[in-house]
Amino acid sequence: MSATPLPPPPPADGPAALPPPPGTDMTGICFRDQLWLNTYPLDRNLVFDYFALSPFYDITCNNESLRSRQIHPLDMSQLTKMTGLEYVLSEVMEPHLFVMRKQKRTNAEKSDALLAYYILDGSIYQAPLLGSVFASRITILFIYCKLRNKSSITGIFVLLFTAETEADAAASESKAQKETIDLKELKRVDHILMSLQRKLPPAPPPPPFPDGYVPSEQEKGPDDLLASEPLPPAIDPIIDQGPAKRPRFQ
Score class of each variant (00 low, 15 high):
residue 1 M to V: 10
residue 2 S to R: 10
residue 3 A to F: 08
residue 7 P to L: 14
residue 14 G to Q: 09
residue 17 A to Q: 13
residue 21 P to N: 09
residue 21 P to W: 07
residue 22 P to F: 06
residue 26 M to T: 09
residue 28 G to N: 14
residue 32 R to K: 14
residue 34 Q to R: 10
residue 36 W to C: 04
residue 36 W to I: 03
residue 38 N to W: 04
residue 39 T to S: 15
residue 39 T to K: 14
residue 40 Y to K: 05
residue 40 Y to N: 11
residue 41 P to Y: 06
residue 42 L to R: 03
residue 43 D to A: 04
residue 43 D to V: 05
residue 43 D to E: 07
residue 49 D to L: 02
residue 52 A to Q: 11
residue 52 A to E: 10
residue 58 D to Q: 07
residue 61 C to M: 02
residue 63 N to S: 05
residue 63 N to K: 05
residue 64 E to L: 04
residue 67 R to A: 02
residue 70 Q to V: 06
residue 78 Q to V: 01
residue 85 L to S: 11
residue 85 L to T: 06
residue 87 Y to L: 04
residue 92 V to D: 00
residue 97 L to H: 12
residue 98 F to M: 03
residue 98 F to S: 00
residue 99 V to D: 00
residue 102 K to S: 09
residue 102 K to A: 11
residue 105 R to S: 02
residue 106 T to D: 08
residue 106 T to C: 02
residue 107 N to D: 15
residue 108 A to T: 11
residue 108 A to E: 12
residue 109 E to M: 06
residue 109 E to H: 05
residue 110 K to T: 12
residue 112 D to L: 07
residue 115 L to E: 10
residue 121 D to K: 07
residue 125 Y to R: 04
residue 126 Q to P: 01
residue 126 Q to T: 03
residue 131 G to T: 10
residue 131 G to S: 13
residue 131 G to P: 01
residue 132 S to Q: 13
residue 134 F to W: 08
residue 136 S to E: 14
residue 136 S to Q: 13
residue 138 I to M: 11
residue 138 I to R: 11
residue 138 I to G: 00
residue 140 I to M: 10
residue 140 I to G: 03
residue 146 K to Q: 13
residue 146 K to I: 08
residue 147 L to I: 09
residue 149 N to G: 00
residue 150 K to H: 09
residue 151 S to A: 06
residue 153 I to V: 14
residue 160 L to R: 06
residue 161 F to S: 02
residue 164 E to A: 09
residue 164 E to T: 11
residue 166 E to C: 12
residue 169 A to R: 12
residue 170 A to C: 08
residue 174 S to Y: 08
residue 175 K to R: 13
residue 178 K to N: 05
residue 179 E to S: 11
residue 180 T to K: 15
residue 182 D to L: 11
residue 183 L to C: 01
residue 183 L to I: 11
residue 184 K to N: 08
residue 187 K to S: 09
residue 188 R to L: 10
residue 192 I to P: 00
residue 195 S to H: 03
residue 197 Q to S: 13
residue 199 K to C: 08
residue 201 P to E: 04
residue 201 P to G: 02
residue 203 A to G: 05
residue 204 P to Y: 09
residue 204 P to I: 08
residue 205 P to N: 08
residue 207 P to K: 14
residue 210 P to W: 08
residue 211 D to F: 05
residue 217 E to H: 05
residue 222 P to D: 12
residue 228 S to P: 00
residue 229 E to V: 04
residue 230 P to E: 07
residue 234 A to D: 12
residue 235 I to V: 15
residue 236 D to P: 04
residue 239 I to P: 00
residue 241 Q to M: 14
residue 241 Q to K: 15
residue 243 P to R: 11
residue 247 P to V: 13
residue 248 R to A: 09
